[in-house]
Amino acid sequence: MNHDASTRPDAAAGQTPIVDAPSLDAPSLEAPILEAVNVTKSFTQDGTPTQALKGVSLAVAPGEFVSIVGRSGSGKSTFLSVLSTLLKPDSGELTYNGLDLARASEADIDGLRHGDFAVIFQFHYLLPYLTALENTLLPFMRGLRPVSGAQRRRGLECLERVGLADKGHRLPGQLSGGEQQRVAIARALVKDARILFADEPTGSLDSATGATVMELLGQIHKDGMSVVMVTHNEQYAGLSDRVVRMADGLMV
């Protein structure tokens, strides 16, 4: 799909958080920032092929919070991985901000992952030998240029935002599951991503901790970030602008 320069959504998304959010299940009227059309993906394991995605489409509007729900094995994680560029689809189109991701160079993709896209997982992936603050600052450690004072302050701010101001020096092993997940969220915040992809972010947390994480995601969304979340939890799904359902590799 093509965007013409005047209708590019990026300008709007940055400054205006969605004030009047679209009602549940109603597709966004705005031009999508991210769009997947007819995506398929199959895996072959032990010689037997599995069609994980059988032609899935989704358009995410700037600033929109979309939940993907469905039974285990329905292809939610696979789809989220395709959306976040971590997995290449077999076929179908994927467009971000007018950029055809199927044809984008590796450098462009790296750039997206570094800047606009942020991913958090069920098992809050942190590097075990870096402190919470260092994990938060990881996006700034891509090259030889040292993390600047300003970046460091921003990291501390983000840690504070997720309620871990006093635990920045701790290693992941010294943090609870919820805290680790919040560090992962701080890492997404620090780079000022446009879209946050979350794969069952509360899946491994107890309900109280899960609630605080969901609260954080809600705030982030309110500040203008698009969120695409995979969840089992219908209640949490209800917090989003729109819920899409998957079953057996298809949208339903």
């Binding site: 790296d110 570094h114 780079k191």
Partner: peptide, 8 residues
């Protein structure tokens, strides 16, 4: 993780 954060 590194790759998902844009490390080439």
């Amino acid at each position: 993780i590194l790759r998902s954060l844009g490390f080439s």
